[in-house]
């Protein structure tokens, strides 16, 4: 189709289309974005274009996102998720990295009143991650009470199997017990003779029959492993 018309610079239909396609930059972009917020008629032109152009996505094949992504989203979306305990224990920033500092700040402001002076402070932490990231298990150790908090964060639990936690130190794997199926966090009391082995060791979870390994050594697949780090 031959079309030699000159389109006036102030043609709203065209500006709306340019904005919808993302062609604008600089002052023109700033101006168009401001008009969307202040001019309902212009905003509805942009919306019309959005709807027309969005049909270009209809032929794109769906791709299933990786397992666990929704859990990652809800961990950020739901402020009362079990994740909060990690903040209490002072290990959340270590798990989430510096990029999540803003989130931690928001949680602190929102839930600051929960911060009691006697809040336990974790001295060691580990994050066990499967190679394909389909399973993530977080752990934090509070030395004052010899308590190890372990949270099954991401991944499916099999109904007819248990997950067993192991301390890997000095070339040996020592069972610490079976993860609870009720609730996401299990508390383990670490026997006195094992406490010194935590530093420099690693934690691992394996797939085991109900009740844990019958032999005292891991019998099933290693689901996830992570080194224990000092906080």
């Amino acid at each position: 189709m031959s079309d030699e018309r000159t389109i006036p610079e102030d043609n709203d239909d065209v500006i709306a289309a340019e904005l919808s396609l993302g062609l604008l930059s600089g002052d023109a972009l700033t101006y168009a974005q401001r008009r969307v917020r202040t001019d309902l008629r212009f905003a509805s032109l942009v919306e019309d274009w959005d709807m027309h152009f969005s049909t270009l996505t209809e032929t794109i094949e769906p791709v299933t996102p990786p397992n666990g992504l929704f859990e990652k989203i809800t961990r950020q979306a739901y402020p009362d998720s079990p994740h909060r305990i990690w903040r209490w224990l002072g290990v959340l920033p270590a798990f989430l990295g510096a990029g999540a500092a803003a989130l931690v700040l928001i949680l602190a402001l929102q839930y600051g009143n929960y911060m009691q002076p006697d809040t336990p402070v974790a001295s060691l932490a580990a994050e066990m991650i499967a190679e394909d990231e389909s399973i993530i298990v977080a752990a934090a150790y509070v030395g004052d009470s010899n308590t190890l908090f372990v949270e099954w964060q991401v991944g499916e639990r099999l109904p007819d199997r248990d997950v067993e936690l192991w301390l890997v130190a000095e070339g040996e794997a020592i069972s610490l017990g079976v993860l609870s199926k009720e609730g996401k966090i299990t508390e383990f009391t670490v026997p006195a003779e094992l406490q010194n082995l935590l530093t420099g060791g690693a934690l691992a979870v394996t797939d085991e029959p109900i009740g844990g390994s019958p032999t005292g050594a891991a019998t099933g697949a290693v689901l996830a492993v992570g080194p224990i780090t000092t906080l």
């Binding site: 018309r5 389109i7 239909d13 289309a17």
Partner: peptide, 8 residues
């Protein structure tokens, strides 16, 4: 811009 106008 001409194409977008024709499209419209």
């Amino acid at each position: 811009r001409r194409s977008l106008m024709s499209l419209k």
